[in-house]
Design a binder for these strands. Structure first.
Lengths: 243, 243
DNA sequence: TGATAAGATATGTCTAGTTGTATAGGAAAA
DNA sequence: TTTTCCTATACAACTAGACATATCTTATCA
């Protein structure tokens, strides 16, 4: 604050002062979540320092989780971590909307294949029965939060493939094929490291930590309707376990 | 030195990750040989990167020989370097189309001359009988693959000259002059180096390897109808010998 | 039915701008 | 002297947009 960069009695390093100034700008709403910050070049002009000094400030804010930068695109104010409750009912879109955030999703692939031994066991069906494989990305406020791949038994849900392609979410698609309600039967969590493909999709770095959830959803009669795995970007989501 | 302990992870470049993902899709049969890949635009959406980054991935796969792209048309999974079966029936256009590629040809020269001693012997006719000399280039997906020069006996096929000029291929031209079918009587193969003229036509470098085929085709009665030599660009074609 | 023209798509190329990384060096503090 | 902080430069990797050019599709007309 009262530090003068040209003073030789400098208590705080220049980069820290810059980081504080930027953090202040953000907290005061001068830069809102999702906004693009000025380029490093412009910031180094504004603060009258070398670009590397600005970079150190930005890298500090990045580690704090306040800023996220994309090579070639710029630096952006990060959205706050999404709190993601896991309990009897897990509804991605509803959860996010309830938290005042804008949910979205992107379809990567929808296709059919025959159930392997493991998949059949998980869904409690016969090996070789047809499944619908559905993978995609979940976004919160335009920021990728999770990568999922999930399986639906086609013998139970014949028209799920078309429904998934047309609807905005799994809940909606399941309702269209006659599953009015479903609940979470089991959830298993582990931590893994992102491989190159996952990192690409989630816009994080290879080797960054992911939270992997393996879950089974069943209809009111207890029949499995969906079995899937989800990889959450570790720094963008907080999972909360409910009773 | 170690300003950021977590930054020592070696990161796969984005384009490489995309190339790997696509190669994986191809090897798993998601895109079969000859299939059209999604457009660069769609791929850049799917991977959440700029189109240029996708282009670098595709160009990598192209150099590997796994993908071929045609301006205005799209990118396609390569059906191996033109696999060219040599057996009883050798039909350039049909072979290429069966491999999912786009055949084309360019006429270099069509003229008449009297048979030399060697030519007469090959076609089993009298020295001095008139021949039709036909030379040109064969293309696959717009890329020159082979240079050929071939001879037709005019006493047997009077109007072949006009037919060659008008038709799209030898099979078609022969049919028009009454040869409904023909088979390969003999094929001899050697490897040679491209001279300056050949290199120019095939868009390769002088001294690059060529596969030279000397072949005789006969009609169902065993009468020679075509005797020719073909120079294949060695790196653009694989000859397969059939029974 | 077939040919042609026009429009929509898709790849190829070019220019410019932004962040990421590596290297080297100077000035002040420990 | 050594370490830390900052400057300076150069290049690599990725984004962004615009435009050129080839191809495919569709509509239209004869």
């Amino acid at each position: 604050m009262s530090d003068n960069p040209s003073s030789n009695r400098r208590r705080t390093p220049i980069w820290l002062a810059i980081a504080n100034a930027l953090r202040n700008d953000i907290s005061e709403g001068r830069y809102a979540p999702g906004d693009k910050l000025p380029t490093e070049s412009r910031l180094s002009d504004r603060f009258g320092v070398n670009r590397h000094t600005v970079r150190q400030a930005l890298s500090h804010l990045t580690e704090e989780g306040l800023v996220r930068s994309r090579r070639g695109a710029g630096s952006f104010v990060a959205a706050t971590p999404t709190d993601y409750p896991i309990g009897k009912r897990v509804r991605f879109h509803q959860n996010l909307r309830a938290a005042g955030r804008r949910p979205d999703r992107k379809v990567l692939l929808i296709e059919q294949h025959a159930a392997s031994k493991g998949e059949a066991a998980a869904l409690n069906i016969q090996t070789g029965e047809m499944l619908c494989y559905y993978s995609g990305l979940s976004y919160a406020d335009g920021q990728p939060v999770a990568l999922f791949e999930t399986l639906f038994p086609l013998t139970r849900l014949a028209r799920i493939e078309a429904a998934l392609a047309e609807c905005d979410g799994i809940t909606e698609a399941l309702r269209r094929v006659g599953v009015e309600d479903y609940t979470r039967a089991s959830t298993r969590l582990t931590a893994v490291l992102a491989d190159a493909t996952q990192a690409l999709h989630l816009q994080i770095r290879e080797g960054d930590p992911l939270l992997r959830s393996t879950a089974l959803n069943v209809d009111p009669a207890g029949v499995p309707v969906e079995y899937g795995r989800t990889w959450f970007a570790g720094d963008r989501v907080t999972l909360t376990i409910e009773d």
